[in-house]
Amino acid sequence: MRFPRRKHAERRLMLELTPMIDVVFLLIIFFMTTAQFARLTRADVDLPREKGEQRHTPEEEGIVINITRDGRVIVSNETVTLDRLEELVFDEIERSRGRSAELAKVMIRPDRNGSTDRLNDVITRLQGMGVGGARLATEVPGQTGR
């Protein structure tokens, strides 16, 4: 007969792992989704250092046009010509049914050290297609983030 030993075995410490696994999975999902999004639309450009409009309202990004320092135009990780860019913008206008070209969502991410030559070319083409406005991306100075 071993009464005392049995009592000890039943009282062993249990570590509750469920919340930790939940949090770890959430973190993995977060990193997976954000990493892919950044890679697809944003090229590595040095944006103008301005605080922007500071509206903090989430907005549909639409087509993202990156303009590098050497004047290359990159859309969805692919260098495109101005003619190809027109096609892509046209597709974007077509995709957003019920919205006119005037209100098409276009985000331009120009390198601040580049020349306005290429930015002016892109804006002239957009304007020629009837796009009434564009958003110029800026890097908020003095802030760090993910």
């Binding site: 770890v24 973190l27 993995i28 990193f31 997976m32 954000t34 990493a35 950044a38 890679r39 944003r42 944006l47 301005e50 605080k51 922007g52 409009e53 500071q54 985000m107 804006i123 002239t124 957009l126 304007q127 020629g128 796009v131 009434g132 406005g133 564009a134 958003r135 110029l136 991306a137 800026t138 890097e139 908020v140 802030q143 760090t144 983030g145 993910r146």
Partner: peptide, 24 residues
């Protein structure tokens, strides 16, 4: 997996925008 994604994620700086109208 968590460590892999944390290390491989490109650090992106916070961005804002300016929305001018376009005209020739």
């Amino acid at each position: 997996l968590l460590i892999y994604f944390m290390v491989s994620t490109v650090l992106a700086r916070p961005e804002d925008r300016l929305s001018p109208s376009l005209q020739t």
